[in-house]
Simulated scan of single mutants.
Amino acid sequence: MITLENVTKIYQGGEKEVKALDDVNLQIEKGEIYGVIGFSGAGKSSLIRCVNLLERPTHGTITVNNQDLLRLSPKELREAKRDIGMIFQHFNLLDSKTVFTNVAMPLLLMKKPKEEVKKRVEELLDFVGLRDKADNYPDQLSGGQKQRVGIARALATQPSVLLCDEATSALDPQTTNSILNLLKKINQEYNITILIITHEMGVIREICDKVAVLDQGEVVESGSVFEVFARPKTAVAYNFVSTVMHDEIPESVHQLIRSQGETNQIYRVVFFGEATGDPLLSQIAKHFNVEVNVLFGNITELQGIPFGNLVIQFQGETKEINRVLMYINQQEVTIKEVLEDAG
């Protein structure tokens, strides 16, 4: 559906070159909701603007719906872009036009018949819940309502692909949830492929099937949302995951452990699926001569799969703790030491 092969984007700033994208490769399948996350300056906006050629890449290939966009004639490209809708962070509405006209604009530019335009716009305003706002102007709307108008406008030409450029970053949390639910509804009812760029891992967790982590113009990690949340391979991915999992140990707890003057070892144990219901810690307490202290823990759900995360402290002889670790490694969990010899 969307393929980026070896995409590089270089901006010229006088005598200095800025490489916004560096050999990016992505494969987004039809019907997926795919997220790209990165900090400010990572290259996210450049990437999404390259997908519909608002920015032309310096090198590489961009294929959408089996068409190599860079090889199309200007007329063919205009046709291809009608199949790619885009939602912007700051809405990009025409303040002097009504909600109805804002949504109708892509169809008016295509010189569609008046009745066809009216029918399509009314259908879309019903879909986004703004039928009663058709005659209002953008400055009479809330931020969430403005974004719904932007979404309706992006859907006007019945695209198969929807690009979302930080579509929720200007909204409050409650409004963000309503917009994400609307995007899920669009994906499910219209089978539209959605590409979202964001700096908020909560958006990725809530809506996406897959995610790519962008850092300094490079894709440093990609996979299913579950894989990246459960087993982040890079520091930048781990930092993003931590923002929504809230699994960091406060310094006050570290100080308490150090003050005990004993050898303490701290581990993060991650549980998946059915393993979240297994009495692992109870079994350890029964069969091994160690004390187990749960410092933090939570169970959430990722893509319908239970996902548990515990930060635990073992106290006891090193030999016995090693036996515990061997036992845990035989279970359907992942364990990683986060602090050794804190005493």
Rank of each mutant, 00 (worst) to 15 (best):
Q147N: 04
D172H: 08
A152Y: 06
S169M: 03
T175H: 01
L171Q: 00
Q147R: 09
A170V: 13
T157I: 10
Q188V: 06
D165C: 12
L162T: 13
S169L: 05
K146F: 02
L182A: 01
D172C: 02
T176G: 13
I186P: 15
K146G: 00
T168W: 09
Q158K: 15
P173D: 08
V149L: 10
N177G: 06
K185H: 12
T168R: 01
T175D: 02
Y190I: 04
T157E: 04
N177Y: 13
A170D: 09
A154V: 13
Q188H: 07
L182F: 03
L162G: 03
L162A: 06
L182M: 04
L162K: 11
Q147A: 03
A156E: 09
T168A: 05
S178H: 02
L163M: 11
A152L: 06
G150S: 00
R153D: 05
L155W: 14
G144Q: 15
K146R: 15
S142G: 11
E166Q: 15
I186A: 15
R153N: 10
K146P: 05
I186L: 12
L162Q: 10
Q145L: 03
T176W: 09
Q174H: 10
S160R: 04
L171H: 00
C164D: 01
G143A: 10
G144H: 12
V161S: 05
V161M: 06
N177T: 14
Q174N: 13
I186Y: 11
S160P: 04
E189N: 07
I179P: 14
L163C: 05
S178R: 13
D165L: 14
T175I: 11
L155T: 09
Y190G: 02
D165I: 06
G150F: 00
A152Q: 12
I179R: 14
I186H: 05
I186M: 14
T175Q: 00
L183Y: 04
R148H: 01
I179Y: 09
V149D: 10
E189M: 06
A167H: 07
I179T: 07
A156G: 12
L183W: 04
Q174P: 00
N177S: 13
T157N: 15
K184T: 01
R148S: 00
